[in-house]
Amino acid sequence: MHLECDGLKYTYPGAKAAVIDNLCFTMTAPGFNAVFGPSGVGKTSLAKLLVSRGNRQESCISTFDIDTILYSYNQERLPNWSSIGSHLNKICPIGKETLKKELIEIFKLKPLLAARFSQLSMGQQNRVNLIRYLLQEFDLLILDESLANVDEALRETIILAIKTLFPGKMFLYISHNLMEVAKFCREILILGESTKQRKNFMVRGRDYTQGYTLDKKAFDATMLEIMNAF
C-alpha cells in the first residue's frame, strides 16, 4: 500500500494564491496516519484532491494497492426519516453484521439506536457517521475531524479499536488535536502556512496501539517536533 504526492499544486477558482503548493509526501504502509496543521492550510482541500484523484488527468497523486478512497467529515448528516439503527442496517453490507455490532458496542451507541439523527448530540452524530464508513469497502479512509465533539477518553478507545480492527487499511486522520495525532498516528504530514519557509514535511508519530505504555520523553519529543513547525 502506497500513497504519494509529488509536486501537488491546487488553486481554487478565482483565488490568487495556491492553497496547496508543491506538496510532496509519501505514505508507504497501511496504518493510522495524519494530516496536521493550522486552519486554512489546505487539509480538507488535500483530502478532496485525494478522493478525486481519478478524475484529474495530470494527477501528481499516485497510489498503489489503494483502489477505494472514502472521505468522511464531521458535518455529515443522516436522513431523519428513520432511526439510526435502521439506517445502519440498511447501509451494512452483507457479511458485516458482526462488525457492525462490534462497532456499535465500541462507539457506545447501543442505547441510541432507536433515536433519530437530530436527537443525538454532535459527538454522537459523528460516531454514527464514522460507523457508516467503517462498514464500507475501502482501502483508504480519510477522517476529516470525524471524531470532533467526542470526549477524549472515548476518542482514544475508538482510534485504538479502529487500529486493531482494520490493520490492513490506511487511514488519514485530519485533526487539530496535537496530543492525539502525536500519540496514535504513524506518519504525520504537517502542512505549514505558505508564508513559512518550511511549508510541509513528515513527522514520525508514536503510533501507539491497544495496551500501550506511554513513553513520556519520546512523546514530548514528537509533540515538540510538530509544534516547532509553527
Binding site: V51, L70, Y71, S72, E76, R77, P79, I91, N129, R132
Partner: peptide, 8 residues
C-alpha cells in the same frame, strides 16, 4: 451533508 455518503 446527507448525500455525500450515498454518492461516495
Amino acid at each position: 451533508d446527507i448525500e455525500h455518503f450515498y454518492i461516495a
